[in-house]
Computed example of a mutant assay.
Amino acid sequence: MISRRNIRVKVMQTLYSYAASLDTDKPLDPQKTLKQHFNQTRSLLTYTVYFLAEVARYAEKDAFKKSHKYIPTEKDLNVNTKLAGSNLLWQILDLNDVKIAFKNEKPEQWGDEELIKKIYTELTASQQYAHYISIGQQSLQEDRKIFEYIFNDLMLDNELFTAHIEEVFSNWDDDGALIAQSVAAFIRKPQSLNFQQIISTDKEVFAVNLLRTVIEKEDYLLSLIKPKLKNWDPERIALLDMVLMKMGVCEFLYFDTIPPKVTINEYIDLAKEYSTAQSGHFVNGILDNIHKELLTEGKITKTDFRKS
């Protein structure tokens, strides 16, 4: 589920926090911090699925509340609960992986009942919902369509929902696109997502090795970077830019299946997105310069990543 780009972001954030903590009484444990970043992604994924399920299940609560009015109307006594009993919803809730995730993460602690109710109310007023409940028989295909509508149109495109989730999860900006893709795939095929292993073994090894190697080889990496800074004072360069350059040079030297062009492009993009307006150009220039020098000196050995 987690891509190499997300891994680089989390390693970057870990290295940044670790470097900043070195001047404190309690420096961070970098590997523990990295693991916490991955756990945050799992929590965000779990809560997003939980919220979606709660919107669908709200039909039951709506029916119960209206039927227990002091003087319920005929309409109050006939709230349609088809969505709450849909095959797709119960496929999701019956998955052992989902049950474990809900038990461990306790997503209800972040729940916003009023927002869930508001989104459900918007849903019941929509043409998509009217079409859904008009179909007499259960249809997994129609279940998927209404769940996709809830998720894409009523959650992701809803400023109230995004404001809520940004407030609860600081990693939404980093992981939002990944979560959206994962939940969309999950709606189509609930068994496709493993909440207990959101990062594959090979990618986890890459993440840990990248983090550890940058820390262990820091002096050597800096010896390659500093001469290229020319009139720049290394102490005045943005800490994040320095972290990104160290990660890039580390990939040149110690990760032989990653093409240098991929490495350079990745860190240019991260510099543009996470650092200053000039950082993309700056990081590009330094990494390209170091790459050319290392090639000339025969210090870069890459295997064909397509055959690795």
Score class of each variant (00 low, 15 high):
Glu142Arg: 14
Asn158Pro: 09
Ala130Glu: 10
Gln36Thr: 12
Asp202Arg: 14
Met155Gln: 11
Thr201Tyr: 15
Leu44Val: 05
Phe64Tyr: 15
Lys307Trp: 10
Asn209Pro: 07
Leu45Trp: 10
Lys228Ser: 05
Leu52Tyr: 07
Arg306Lys: 04
Gln31Pro: 00
Val249Lys: 02
Thr296Ser: 11
Ala130Gln: 11
Tyr120Phe: 12
Asn171Gly: 12
Lys32Gly: 05
Asn152Gln: 07
Leu83Ser: 09
Ala130Thr: 10
Lys261Val: 05
Ile258Ala: 05
Asp202Cys: 08
Arg188Cys: 08
Gln197Arg: 14
Phe206Cys: 02
Glu235Asn: 04
Lys292Ala: 11
Glu218Lys: 06
Trp90Phe: 14
Ile92Glu: 01
Gln109Tyr: 13
Ile198Met: 10
Gly136Arg: 05
Asn96Tyr: 10
Lys261Glu: 07
Lys226Met: 02
Tyr220Met: 13
Arg42Lys: 15
Val214Gln: 10
Asn152Asp: 07
Leu160Phe: 09
Phe161Cys: 13
Gln109Phe: 12
Arg212Lys: 11
Asp94Tyr: 04
Phe255Asp: 00
Leu244Ile: 03
Leu52Thr: 05
Lys66Ser: 13
Lys82Ile: 10
Met155Leu: 13
Leu229Lys: 03
Asp153Thr: 12
Trp172Glu: 02
Tyr58Arg: 12
Ile7Ser: 00
Phe147Leu: 11
Thr24His: 08
Glu266Ser: 12
Ala177Asn: 10
Thr201Cys: 15
Asn284Tyr: 12
Gly111Lys: 15
Ile135His: 13
Ile290Arg: 00
Ile179Asp: 10
